[in-house]
Amino acid sequence: MKQEVDDKRLIASVVLLERFVRDIYPTKHSSAIQPLQWSILRYLARTPADRCEVRWIAQFLGLTRAPVTRAIATLESRDLVKQQISDEDARTKTVTLTTLGVKTLAEDPIVLAAERIRILPKIDQEQFVRSVRSLALNYGSNSHE
């Protein structure tokens, strides 16, 4: 009986975790920015310009270039990023955030989620951080593809 209760609690906690993550992304509209696209916006915001090329972004995210190229094209069509021919190599394009991209990133769902966690007691925050780190170390496979 005890084992059943423990299993039920564990599964329920994952349901809550999944809902917590799902709720932070405004996915009610098909035009909503997708998690991979948010990852790219974040990368562009804190990476030197010469590293903002598809190959570097793909390496960082553990993806092939094709899905990254598609995601960047979508972001560009929404005026969140722009692509320019590299000054050093005409075969490559560097990707930068537009003004709208910077403004959009200020509403990054991850930051909003962190705000929700920050209001928890310090001990709960610390347990949360340690638990997600353990999960990531034990289950580190790529998930964007």
């Binding site: 590293r51 993806l63 951080v129 580190g140």
Partner: peptide, 26 residues
Amino acid sequence: SGGNGSMDLERTEAISDVSGAVMFLQ
């Protein structure tokens, strides 16, 4: 880090940040 077959760099950087790293170089 240059990555590892089992974990992408986005996750590697996040684990590093969680573990107290001040900087991550790809």
